[in-house]
Design a protein around this nucleic acid. Structure first.
Length: 221
DNA sequence: ACCCAGGGTCATA
DNA sequence: TATGACCATGGG
């Protein structure tokens, strides 16, 4: 099955998702950390708190005490852990020279550096790569595994890097447009997977035929 | 009351 | 390499 076919079904069913719901690259980075294993609605509250406290900046996050920052991001859950992770990230980000410098790094070097930050794992790193730095990286999440396992494309036992490599390689081959268009497609595809999962694949694991049933919006024939 | 959400780290075997 | 414990809020 062509991976691009699934994308086309989702796009026709749901339309553009306009991700990432953040105004600036830095806000996207903060959101990527805060949304770890957390509903986005809770992340929105935490970001609103940061904005209200005039603390949605690298310098503010670095200067707040861990407990002060934790209190602001409390609605996002895991607030002590995430306060530390945000400060780890911002310390690295500032030391590296911020967006102006990092935007010139190679895809590989940037990804390796992101993964070296304590608190930034593969999915968070790839959210930042794709949505903040607009690099051609395909984000793998639990929804992606579930949906494509149900479709019989993958077994579910593949590692993160294996899946990412498969999506990137196969989509680059199936999609005939240029790199900027492919990046935009990766952007939309991941957002559509999340949309589809929340909308149509909520019953689990009973929905073993999800995306194959007629009533599924992301049905693939 | 229970389940899970746009994960990651660390200790242990 | 591969599990398991742990982190914690808020909505269904």
């Amino acid at each position: 099955m062509r991976l691009l076919t699934v994308y086309q079904h989702f796009y026709r069913a749901y339309g553009p998702q306009h991700w990432w719901p953040g105004e600036t690259p830095f806000e996207i980075m903060v959101g990527a950390v805060l949304t770890q294993n957390t509903a986005w609605s809770n992340v929105e509250k935490a970001i609103a708190n940061l904005v209200a406290a005039d603390a949605l900046s690298v310098s503010a996050i670095n200067q707040l005490s861990p407990s002060e920052l934790a209190e602001l991001i409390r609605p996002a859950g895991y607030f002590n852990v995430k306060a530390k992770r945000l400060q780890n990230y911002c310390a690295w980000y500032q030391a590296a020279g911020g967006f102006e410098v990092l935007q010139h790094w190679s895809d590989h070097d940037l990804r390796v550096a992101l993964l070296a930050v304590n608190g930034v794992g593969p999915e968070t790193a790839d959210d930042i790569m794709l949505y903040a730095f607009e690099r051609p990286v395909f984000v793998i999440d639990a929804y992606t595994r579930r949906i494509f396992q149900r479709l019989g494309v993958f077994t579910g036992g593949e590692g993160y890097e294996t899946l990412r490599s498969e999506f990137e390689t196969r989509l680059a081959r199936e999609f005939k447009e240029d790199l900027p268009a492919r990046i935009q497609m990766f952007n939309e595809y991941h957002a559509l997977i999340v949309r589809h999962a929340k909308e149509a694949c909520r019953t689990k694991p009973a929905c073993s035929q999800c995306c194959l049933r007629k009533q599924c919006p992301g049905r693939v024939d």
